[in-house]
Amino acid sequence: MTSDRKMAQTTLEQRPAGGHRVSQWALAWRRLKKNKVAIAGLGIVGIFIVMAAFDRLVALYPPKCILGVSPACQLDGRLHSNSPPGLAYPLGTDITGYDVYSEIVYGTRAAFLIGVGATGLTMLIAVVIGLAAGYFGGWMDNLLMRLTEVFLVIPFFLLLLVFLQVTIKLAPANTGSIWLVVFVIGAFSWPGAARIIRGEVLRVREFEFIAASRQIGASSYRILFRHLFPNVLHIIIVLATLQIAASILTEAAVSFLGFGAPGSNTWGQQMYNSANYVEQAWWGTLFPAVFVTLMVMGFNLLGNGLRDALDPRLRE
């Protein structure tokens, strides 16, 4: 209903004289704070950030420490392989004798690396393509969008597996590199985001403030970066948050299937290593999966909350 929306809007109009400015971002933050679910998501992500930053403090043992064998974790001097959760190892140990909990903690950094790294690449490609297609239109739009559609119809996951397999075969030296996985995920995940950003640019481009700016004599560069980009930034933030979750999930799946980077310590890799012993030691597979789920859920809740908080349709 327009009239009550208009009224809600008048609420902010008559602030006391001299009151300090309230930017759209400040308003979005206020809205976000009222959304309990989003704050829960933010909390989960925050806990994971702390975990990644202070992993040595949060973990019980040093990384790659074989319980009962390595000098740093002697315990009773007996190899603790596939031991069920107990006092010394709350989430059990895996086949090698690593403490599952500590290894999960050390895997957090890798999860962020994958999520943020792949998303950075994805959003870079998506923003460039989305802005260019939406702003310049015409043949440029036609070309870029057809390209995007080609990428969209390719079965992304299969392609990813094939690509990883081929690179592992062709360049065995790279196989240990988690960056390759990050690059491949990032390079194939952008089409959806590019289309959404283009759509938003098309919408914002029609607003009169763009025409007003052009009419003043502003250059294309100025219109793109001073007006269009800040006005689609909220969509980019939401897409990026959700993309982080999607990238982590993809890496976990790829690794679990055995196509990941073998030398890396990711949750997916941990699940893969324990998968053969799931009958004797289910904890080695289950708990990394639980943490993947928790982190993905955290980012998804935050992303959905951000979407509600930043949605311009709620503004006017």
């Binding site: 009239s3 009550d4 009224m7 809600a8 609420t11 902010l12 809205r31 009222k34």
Partner: peptide
């Protein structure tokens, strides 16, 4: 009245 997040709008 409208009970909005910003307050009660006495429409």
């Amino acid at each position: 009245y409208f009970f909005t997040y910003a307050g009660i709008v006495k429409a």
